[in-house]
Design a protein around this nucleic acid. Sequence first.
DNA 1: AGCACA
Length: 113
Amino acid sequence: MGLNPAYAGAYGAAPPFSQIPYMGGAKAAVPEAPAPPNSILFVQNLPHQSTPMMLQMLFCQYPGFKEVRMVEAKPGIAFIEYGDEMQSTVAMQALQGFKITAENPMLITYAKK
DNA sequence: AGCACA
């Protein structure tokens, strides 16, 4: 009565759920809408030495610019506020991936909360 | 990777 591998799948030896590729990792619908539009932009991948001044120089060129807020607690991210979401969208598209330095292309999304 | 102001 040795262990016959043939019984392994038939009884208790099923693989953990985490290894079963059920849906191949399907998520919610529409990957084209990563974040809901917002008049405030969330900017990340900034060099840690960047200042609100630098961001203002860049973003104030686009219509509707209101203000820039940096998050001191988490270096490398910042918020850019615009008058409305149409204007913030234009600015986001325009400056998306803008290289502040060679290693720091800006990653811009709509702000979360 | 991160999400702050009012």
